[in-house]
Simulated scan of single mutants.
Amino acid sequence: MAVKEATGNNDGPRVEEYLAYTGFGKGHAWCAAFVSWCYGKAGLPAPRNAWSPALFPLARRYTKEQIQGGVIRRADLFAIYNQKLGRIDHVGIVQKMERNWILTVEGNVNNGVLSKRRSLATIYAFSNWLD
């Protein structure tokens, strides 16, 4: 069964479960909470944060050289930057790298959890929470 918001307002049983994992209730943006929940289900204690910029500290970010060298792997995180807000405002999980594309799993896209194909040109940063 696909995960969808109940009313399109960051709500619904599964969405609220993701948010609760990071200490928030319904109505909050939940892409980072979804990522954190997935890591928790995989037995990893971190990240556990609903604020997407917090999932990209410099110590965990890949450098351009690392990215060009092909180090991005399954379960790394990717960030989308919002120029208007002046910050990262979306995060998801890398499923696979395909040349200049990534296949993803992300929450809070079209009011649900989706797999998407994104151009590397649209990705602001990648981070490693596996090591």
Rank of each mutant, 00 (worst) to 15 (best):
L130Q: 14
L19I: 06
A125G: 02
V35P: 00
P57T: 06
I102Q: 05
K96W: 11
N111C: 13
K26T: 05
A46F: 12
T7D: 13
E5N: 08
K116I: 03
A2K: 10
N108V: 12
V109F: 13
N100Y: 08
K96D: 12
N111D: 15
A20H: 07
P45M: 07
G69I: 01
R48H: 06
Y81S: 03
R60I: 04
L44Y: 14
M1R: 11
G25I: 07
N10C: 11
A121Q: 13
G43D: 12
I67W: 09
T104C: 13
G27M: 07
W37N: 04
H90G: 02
T7Q: 09
G70H: 04
L58N: 13
E65D: 15
M97H: 02
Q95L: 14
T7Y: 04
F126S: 08
W101P: 00
G92S: 03
S127H: 12
K96C: 15
V3Q: 06
H28L: 05
A79P: 01
L44T: 02
D89C: 05
G27C: 09
A6S: 13
N111L: 10
W30C: 09
F78I: 02
F126A: 07
L19D: 01
Q83W: 04
L85E: 13
L85Y: 06
N108R: 08
L55H: 08
I123T: 10
F78Q: 03
N10I: 05
T7C: 08
L58C: 04
K26Q: 15
D76Q: 06
Y39S: 00
D131N: 15
C38Y: 11
S36H: 05
Y39I: 00
G92W: 00
E16G: 03
H28C: 08
N49A: 12
I80V: 15
I72E: 12
W30M: 05
G107K: 02
R60F: 03
I80A: 08
T22E: 02
L130N: 13
G23R: 04
G86T: 10
G112M: 11
L19W: 02
T122D: 12
K84V: 07
P45S: 15
K84M: 11
V109A: 12
A33E: 01
R99V: 11
Y18C: 05
R117A: 03
W30Q: 02
W51P: 00
D76W: 05
I123E: 04
N111F: 14
A6W: 01
C38R: 14
R61Q: 15
V3H: 09
S115Q: 14
I72D: 04
N128R: 14
G107A: 09
W30R: 06
N128D: 15
S127Y: 09
E106P: 05
E17R: 10
S36L: 06
I93D: 00
S36D: 00
E16P: 03
K116T: 12
G27V: 12
A33K: 04
T22H: 03
F24T: 06
V35T: 12
P53V: 02
W101H: 12
V109I: 09
F56T: 03
P57I: 01
I102G: 01
Q66C: 09
L114Y: 10
V94M: 03
Q83C: 02
F56Q: 07
T63H: 12
G23D: 10
